[in-house]
Design a protein around this nucleic acid. Structure first.
Lengths: 334, 334
DNA sequence: GTGAAAGCGCTAACAG
DNA sequence: CTGTTAGCGCTTTCAC
């Protein structure tokens, strides 16, 4: 990489002249500016990012900590963060906590050494289960702002972007009740997560309101064979005529299993899940899905963080709620 | 963030003494080392990463450029790169080219200003279609090594990690021929990619060898409704008794569609696809899959890059082939 | 108009 | 054993 020094030497001018010329300072003579710029272009000069960061005490880099990159929703948010960040001239350093508290702490620690100007993160499962928040608080009091999305730690004072999970399943369940479904089940492999709990609560609330249906829950773990579990569940609980799926996979598996068992969808059973468009194609009929608008979530989180960094953090914390929407297919009745 | 300067001041010693003490230099007195370390621990001192990078002229950061983060395989590789990098004390800066040549060039440019010590990337679709490689060559001649994985530009001299795509579909097709399948189709939504072409070639080669089956291709685009297209294809081409799917979705859709049309799997038709474990659950029976060992690919790529960076790049370029393996389920005959 | 010098935080060669 | 100094690449204030 070419440096100012080298350019200066070759042009027989001082380093500061070159610097100023390249930064369009009014101080430098037209002719000199031209000579400097030409040589810089020739050598494809780029100001060294590291030196700039050191000088200006900011890196224009955002640390992003994601619990699970294989989760379609989370990686979609990551995509959107990257896009928005790039748009504003920021890079992102990605760490994957893999749902582990330890790794989350490490990542936070590791990047809090001047590598990044702030963080966007979604809280790891283990962190939520153990309800640890010290590491977040420390980071913030160290001057590094955090924006949390989706899975948030409510007791940490920072900007947040969340989904209306409760409302989403509440309305989905109500919708099925409106279809005169009498035995609506709830499938979830995320019962430990804050969002999983909210979704379950929305479902339960809707059932409570009508009063004549007991909740019917199936909790899956990632050790289970989901097809097997779901099939067993259908067999054990005869007459299920509705399924709300809190995660991205069990909705399509529910439809496929129902069909396999000879049920007609949506005549005999309705299914709604939290999947993406791609996954909704994995059943016939396609799965009716609750869309979380990952794109908007990522963009909002990024904007909130950049705003806060530019205002030196003195601002009230905000929580933005991104509303879900229901994309209806033939897996529910009209 | 605390700096050496502040510690030095508070301890009434020089900056270099503090630095040496913290770096366990033999030069410094036991007592001083202790005092310094205690204060450093108290203030949670961390050497400023940016200053270190500037001083040592390396950032311990790897730039990763991924064409599509929603692609399960690619994000799995990303996961594995992050893991391996972290293990060796490297961070990763992620850019998503979104299959665009322009964005790929930009990312390369943007990070070639001292932000990273090298790159790991998979080539964008547009880049492969237009067969552009100048930007890669420039980067490398600028002293920044590149390791390519999966989708590689063969004409660029650099380390590569690839999958035996040709072999994989060749053997999968042969396997179906062994099942006495007489009308084996090939589904793909990645015909433009180098790997898509190789997979198609493997399929065709196997058919050629037996000589009595013409290739039967269905090319999907992301504008298509894959369910509709596949259903139409089945109806138009009666008697399809085998499907090889080159992408991650069309395999499960093929099974679901076949079942929907009244076929028995695997009695009437066999299906093999390039999916992940999670997606293979989205059909009944589960999809037989060709696994690409994303984990190993990411780890190998990272190791190759780190090795090259440590040897200052003077080494012959290597190409590592990671063999796929077939995970067999009931979507094919025993 | 141009250049010298200081300083961002750190390491390391050299001096004492 | 400890301190001084230079320098990584850059911006910016202040002299000339």
């Amino acid at each position: 990489m070419v440096t100012l020094k080298q350019l200066a030497k070759e042009l027989n001018v001082s380093i500061s002249t070159v610097s100023k010329a390249l930064n369009n300072s009014e101080e430098i003579g037209e002719e000199t500016v031209k000579r400097v710029k030409e040589l810089a272009a020739l050598y494809n000069y780029k100001p060294n990012k590291v030196a700039l960061s050191l000088k200006q005490n900011k890196t224009k880099t955002i640390g992003v900590i994601i619990p699970d990159i294989l989760n379609h929703f989370l990686s979609k948010v990551l995509f959107s963060i990257e896009r928005e960040a790039t748009k504003h001239g920021y890079n992102i350093i990605t760490c994957i906590s893999n749902e582990s508290l330890e790794k989350e702490k490490e990542s936070l620690q590791l990047l809090a050494n001047g590598s990044v100007d702030g963080f966007i993160l979604s809280v790891a499962k283990e962190t939520q289960v153990k309800n640890e928040i010290e590491h977040f608080k420390n980071t913030i009091s160290n001057g590094l702002p955090i924006v949390m999305f989706d899975r948030v730690a409510h007791d940490v004072l920072c900007d947040k972007v969340i989904v209306d999970d409760f409302e989403a399943t509440y309305h989905a369940t109500k919708r099925m009740i409106g279809e005169k479904r009498n035995k609506i089940a709830f499938f979830s492999d995320i019962e430990d997560l804050s969002v999983g709990k909210l979704r379950e609560r929305g479902y339960k609330k809707a059932l409570e309101e009508i009063g004549n249906q007991a909740p019917l829950l199936l909790h899956l773990t990632n050790k289970d064979d989901p097809q097997k579990k779901i099939k067993q569940f259908f067999k054990k609980n005869k007459g299920i005529d509705g399924v709300i799926a809190a995660d991205s996979s069990s909705g399509v598996i529910a439809i496929n299993t129902a069909v396999n068992l000879g049920l007609k969808v949506p005549k005999d059973i309705s299914v709604i899940g939290f999947s993406s468009k791609a996954v909704s194609n994995h059943s016939i009929p396609k799965l009716t899905t609750i869309r979380q608008h990952a794109k908007e979530i990522g963009a909002s989180a990024t904007q909130l963080l950049i705003q806060r960094m530019q205002n030196n953090g003195d601002e009230d914390v905000k929580t933005k709620i991104v509303k879900t929407s229901l994309v209806q297919t033939k897996s529910v009745k009209k």
